[in-house]
Design a protein around this nucleic acid. Structure first.
Length: 340
DNA sequence: AGACCCCTTGTCAGGGATGT
DNA sequence: ACATCCCTGACAAGGGGTCT
């Protein structure tokens, strides 16, 4: 199963290690995909210089964006070791952002931020080399509707053995789409046949890939409306069901953890009730702090009036600021427990 | 045992959506 | 505007269960 994972990130690691060749620095790949555990990073690296050896747990990320930054940082933080982000290309603003957040990185263009005193490396502004490989996000499973199917399976692992039409109903897609996705999952190492029944395996790794792809491929398609409001304090007490909405993102996280003051508000529903806009004095604004997204799944979450926790988790990562990542970290164990 | 039936799954053309 | 991608729904075949 690891074979396919390597195909997904073919030479990114080698390309980055080659690009970041500085006098006196020597990279060594200690391990690829240690233990196959998603929580332990994509590789373990050793950096030698001046007779010292520094150990890094690396996360490989292609096509890093603002929206996927949160997931990347969250994964790095989960390792509990010195983390290193390995990207195909880090733009100058992104490089500044990573440095500001204390995230060490290298990329395939030769940009780098490494700081383990007395080592300090700061290279920024290198242009990307020719595209490493076409952005092979991998077939249908990680397209928008594929992600809907995977979401249903991650929330309800047992559903993987349901008939395609039932899975399709849960996921809100056509059953033909389920066929395409289900054909790929065994190849990707996420589904195994056991006594003629399908079983979801390696769900933790699938979750990781899902939260990475969600803000890129699916989330942008769900936007029903975005609005601005000066004050968000109403969010903490709102009965969203009055407007046919479910709490997501920060409002949901605030209810679950009791120690987050939402800086943004995410709701999921089928449409935007005009009452919501008048009651809460919301002004349409494409950069606003309140968003309503289309509910794409057809099953109940764990908490009434709230989207499934896994989606709260994913949205926190997509928001990506430090507070949200902290809460996401607290939620992770609870979500992973659902896979057992 | 055989016939029948329904559920499930695979396949594919059409066209809608999306990106260039 | 055009090309590409891929989602959808229709159709047909496979397979297992049931009834006679």
């Amino acid at each position: 199963m690891d074979k396919h994972r390597r195909q997904h990130e073919p030479d990114l690691l080698q390309a980055a290690l080659t690009a970041v060749q500085l006098p006196g620095l020597q990279w060594e790949v200690v391990e690829r995909e240690p233990g196959g555990q998603a929580t332990r990073g994509d590789a373990v690296l050793c950096l030698r210089f001046d007779g010292r050896e520094l150990r890094y747990v690396a996360e490989l990320k292609r096509g890093l964006r603002r929206a996927t930054l949160g997931a990347a940082l969250h994964q790095l933080a989960n390792h509990g070791e010195q983390g290193l982000l390995v990207a195909d290309y880090v733009t100058p603003p992104m490089a500044d952002e990573l440095r500001r957040r204390g995230v060490q990185f290298i990329d395939a263009a030769g940009n780098a931020w490494l700081t383990q005193p007395p080592l300090h490396v700061w290279v920024k502004g290198e242009r990307p080399k020719e595209a490493l490989a076409p952005p092979t996000q991998g077939g249908r499973a990680f397209q928008a509707t594929g992600l809907q199917v995977l979401f249903a399976l991650l929330c309800r692992p047992a559903a993987v053995d349901l008939p395609y039409r039932e899975i399709a109903a849960l996921a809100g897609v056509a059953h033909g789409t389920v066929g395409w996705v289900m054909a790929e999952l065994p190849q990707l190492g996420f589904v195994a046949m056991l006594r003629k029944r399908r079983r979801l395996i390696d769900a933790e790794r699938l979750l990781k890939r899902w939260v990475d792809a969600y803000p890129q491929r699916l989330r942008p398609k769900l936007l029903l409306g975005r609005y601005d409001t000066r004050k968000l304090d109403w969010v903490e007490a709102i009965d969203a069901t009055r407007y046919g909405l479910l709490l997501g993102g920060e409002p949901a996280a605030a209810r679950l953890t009791q120690h987050l003051r939402p800086g943004t508000a995410t709701f999921y529903g089928n449409k935007v009730e005009p009452n919501l806009l008048t009651d809460q004095r919301l002004q349409p604004d494409r950069n606003g702090n309140v968003e309503v997204l289309r509910r794409f799944w057809n099953f109940e979450g764990e908490t009434p009036g709230m989207v499934p926790h896994l989606l709260v988790y994913a949205d926190l990562l997509a928001i990506g600021d430090a507070r949200c990542l902290e809460i996401a970290g607290e939620m992770h164990a609870g979500i992973a427990a659902g896979f057992a």
